[in-house]
Design a protein around this nucleic acid. Structure first.
Lengths: 336, 336
DNA sequence: CTGAAAGCGCTAACAG
DNA sequence: CTGTTAGCGCTTTCAG
């Protein structure tokens, strides 16, 4: 059986309180005592029982991260960044998949597993603005993404509209006027697709370019395959375009592949821009111009804000943080 | 404050034991009693405190997964599969990054955090065969990967040698004789690079093709950028080749990109094969022929074996499981 | 500066 | 079928 505080205390000839003090760096301990205790700890290979500690203290040192699935590169890179930030603070991260399914998202929000972590960083996909009331949970919660705004939970998100407008303006600045979109969601207003599409339309309006619904490619999910399918439909429809805005990188990459299969040159015939700045966007052929939406900053801020809530349970009003973005120019849009 | 067993018991007019029985589906409870208790639970919104349960029972319902980083697509897809399998069994997964660094791997193995999970699925990269003794830990441990064999822990791995031999034979069957390799590790015998290179050489030998060291491209890490760099060096060296074996998909993809930049046609001038069958291998241009190393099976088996160890602490001898592999034919090697 | 003692919420004997 | 009781190992008053 593993050694406990009592064992250490007995061996060191002190009380368990003293051992506890040493472990928790309580300041006023006589050096000689500390020495004795540390030696006993080493000798027994003592390790604190984290379950007991968390039962007693109410803190677990764990944060939970709920997202659709790690198979989606964007979320894998987000999770990577969150884990990094958590580890810098001595925290561990548990990951739960929701599959982007509303019911599973609700289940995640109220699961008893929440007690096993100090708080939750939650990236919903199936829930929508109408569910905003359900985010008033009794534990520290940081919302990510573009599905739910204005709730009582802290929220860290991207500047979707502005970034999409910038992407579109960039294409327009290159002289492109017929800009197709891949990844639109029918009738969506809020959510990544809705917001990015709004940015697209704002840029068009500002430049006096009429909006043509025939240029929109719809896809339900943003999996890699859908960008390809959507582009095939666009090509089959016969609509003409000289640029494509992929609402995320995987869509853009899938679309770019289909364009080239069809004998179109990127960027000469069609310029392509994405959104997310995934690692792989650097290594496609041609490399993909895209928006860096500030993923690192989002991860860092989310963990910071969450831990602030954990530390102080005062009811300061919910924060809404927008990460900085920038355009990453690569080959798929040609020389600027 | 959240409701406890006592609150429920009081409200339902029974003892806490009865409530506990209801929660844990203890069979012999009078329906009327069960009814009362369930109503009290609903009314109070009672949720069991998992910390307390785990302190008492010694089980946490959590499994830990330690891997280099989620930014590497292979590990993201592996983690995805492990989480899926865990969720099917009602378990949650915590993920720890090691960065492939030996010291951090050792730290992970003996961290007190291990007590917060029932067991560990561990994919080392920095540790090597000499560290095999350090894998005899006091908790359920499943080793993944190709760094350490023959220890006292269960081990789930790929058929690296056989799969790499099959990949090489496939290229040879296509009439290619000068097969370059991207991702070799200087002097490595065990480990993914070493084993896959051995498979490569076995295939060469079997076909009577002399081994030419000039065809090996070395890279320290298997990040995407390294495949590109390695291929650039190979091209600069002037060595001639008609095929490339990327020791994993990201390397192959990086290399393929450089080949095309250099004006070489894939597969006409150079055929390319990878290893891992990442999602993105389907969507590159051309799509990448690769080895599916049985990732799903690895995840499923790892979780199964781990939970068997958790359930029965008997010291049955360590298992060594090899997943099935298969060649996935795509465009980068042309029609077979 | 250190010790004694209470109890976090739960499970599991052991009785009835 | 249900109630009582004793801890799991730790933190934390409260006294010395």
């Amino acid at each position: 059986m593993a050694a406990t505080l009592h064992d250490v205390a007995r061996l060191a000839g002190v009380s368990i309180k003293t051992v506890s003090n040493v472990i928790n760096d309580y300041p006023h301990i006589r050096p000689a005592t500390r020495e004795k205790v540390e030696q006993a700890i080493a000798e027994l290979g003592y390790q604190p029982n984290l379950s007991a500690r968390s039962l007693r203290s109410g803190r677990t040192g764990v944060i939970a991260l709920a997202l659709p699935e790690l198979g989606l590169s964007y979320f894998a890179e987000l999770a990577d960044a969150v884990i990094r930030e958590a580890e810098r603070r001595g925290l561990t991260v548990t990951i739960e998949h929701t599959g982007g399914d509303r019911d599973r998202e609700l289940e995640v929000l109220r699961s008893p597993r929440r007690k096993l972590s100090d708080g939750l960083i939650f990236s919903p996909l199936g829930m929508s603005q109408e569910d905003v009331g359900l985010t008033g949970v009794g534990y520290p919660l940081v919302l990510l993404g573009e599905r739910i705004f204005g709730g009582t939970a802290d929220h860290v998100t991207m500047q979707n509209v502005d970034a999409a407008r910038a992407a579109t303006e960039y294409l327009i600045g290159l002289g492109r006027r017929r800009i197709a979109v891949v990844g639109a969601h029918e009738g969506e207003v809020i959510g990544s697709a809705g917001l990015r599409l709004r940015g697209y339309r704002e840029a068009l309006d500002a430049a006096g370019i009429p909006f043509d619904p025939a240029l929109l490619g719809y896809t339900a999910l943003w999996h890699r395959a859908n960008g390809a399918t959507s582009m095939r439909e666009l090509l089959r429809s016969g609509v003409r375009f000289d640029a494509v805005f992929g609402l995320n990188d995987t869509l853009a990459l899938g679309a770019m592949r289909v364009l080239q299969e069809a004998g179109l040159r990127v960027p000469d015939d069609v310029a392509v821009i994405g959104f997310d700045d995934l690692d792989e966007a650097q290594y496609s052929l041609p490399s993909l111009t895209t928006i860096d939406p500030g993923r690192e900053q989002i991860a860092r801020t989310a963990v910071d804000v969450l831990m602030q809530r954990v530390a102080s349970h005062d009811a300061t009003p919910a924060r809404e943080v927008y990460a900085d973005f920038r355009i990453v120019e690569r080959e798929s849009t040609g020389p600027a």
